[in-house]
Design a protein around this nucleic acid. Structure first.
Lengths: 235, 235
DNA sequence: TCGCTGGAATCAGTATACCGTTTGCGCAGG
DNA sequence: CCTGCGCAAACGGTATACTGATTCCAGCGA
């Protein structure tokens, strides 16, 4: 229950955003303003405004019955990664150049937690440590617009990431790429960081596509097309 | 008064967004929910939600007395252009590759309107045609995430753009760069489009920085630091 | 047993009202 | 004429109430 400011909307927003980052909300769940409201002991409006903000940012979609986490199509994944490929290698290079000892300590701590969680197959801890690692290296990016944009694009993938980490082989490969980037950061080598991030991007795209493809196939065999998301354009 | 959907918030949002794109709102203006509300004959809430959405997207800032268009610092400009440099050349290359005859006609029509407005020194028309040109070529970008992100980053600059076009020399140079990009699109040459967009990015950054620097200096001499923007983090 | 219909429940959208804070202005005192 | 105090208005934030649409389910008929 963070209170980033004195205002309720921001508090609810931060709470929900954290839940989404931790993959604590499944696409089957329905987020309803009234529920969130009396869970926090407040009225509908702040909860509603937080939800609408998440919708306008693309994390949620409005359905006729509550709000749901957005499910990415294969085209979404490709498109999002095209953007990530343009931004993250560059940002990683900046981070490697401007890395401070404090942030080095943070990313190393996060990396250790990632590997510990991997060895224990503790998926929730893995997700959390992964978020920590990302947030830590983004702190070394001096351009806040760059960092915010990247952060946002990464967060779109939380629902798929859960599926990736469930497969031990894919998780291992993912973490391996992460640790190579970590090494480049510690070496303060912008070019190495850039290259390794580029490789990581392609590997991650492939992993997400294959996970999502499998998800969609399973869903298809289970039920021959259901569900309905309402038209609610972000204009 | 567009109605992109049946919902009032979207209508107000689109209306305000258009006003911002057209630079119809100056940084000195104050946008107040109640005013917008009874100007449209509706209650406060939809107007307020539209304003909050614009705040969360970074176009507006909340002050203690109404909402105001966000003013960019020199660091903001540099940071935003670092992102634009990563994205727009790539997007321009995609657009050049995938350009359809319909979109070619659109961008040519917009380009003609740009040059007509330039020759007449009709700044509002120049702004409008400039927006049209951008929206037209972005339609040829098949990746909607890429297009939306770029569109957003461009829109941050509307308040500064007004100042750029006021200077005939800068405006001419700006439009010249635009017409070179236009030619690359018509030639369906992705590499040429990419290179020319890259050049355009650097030139535009320099132009915006110099305009903004002059604005800040003028403001400084006029009054020795005034105004107050309230803390209202986007978390 | 299956399909259809009607009503009840759910939920997003909108309106209205209230409260606390900030700000700007006017008035009084120096 | 300048300064400080205080009050009233303006505005953002929150709460509550109402409305209309959609969906789910139960009951009825085939």
């Amino acid at each position: 229950m963070l209170k980033p400011n004195d205002n309720l909307v921001d508090a609810i927003y931060a709470d929900l955003r954290l839940k989404l980052q931790r993959s604590a909300v499944s696409p089957a769940d329905r987020l309803v303003d009234t529920e969130i409201a009396n869970a926090h002991g407040i009225s509908r409006m702040p909860a509603r405004e937080a939800l609408l903000r998440l919708v306008s940012e693309g994390y949620l979609v409005g359905t006729t019955r509550g709000f749901a986490v957005r499910e990415l199509s294969l085209d979404d994944i490709s498109g999002l990664f095209e953007v990530r490929r343009q931004l993250e290698p560059r940002a990683a290079a900046c981070a490697a150049r401007d890395m401070t000892p404090e942030i080095e300590a943070e990313i190393t701590a996060a990396m250790n937690r990632v590997e510990l969680a991997l060895s224990r197959s503790d998926i929730p801890a893995l997700l959390a440590a992964n978020v920590d690692f990302r947030n830590a290296w983004l702190k070394a990016v001096n351009n806040p617009h760059m960092a915010a944009t990247i952060s946002r694009f990464i967060d779109y993938f939380q629902s798929v990431r859960l599926g990736t980490f469930a497969d031990p082989g894919a998780a291992y490969q993912y973490i391996d790429g992460l640790s190579r980037i970590h090494a480049a950061f510690l070496a303060h080598d912008p070019l190495m960081a850039q290259d390794r991030m580029t490789l990581f991007m392609f590997a991650a795209e492939e992993a997400y596509l294959s996970v999502r493809r499998r998800q969609l196939e399973e869903a298809e065999t289970a039920r021959p097309a259901r569900r309905r998301t309402r038209k609610r354009g972000t204009a």
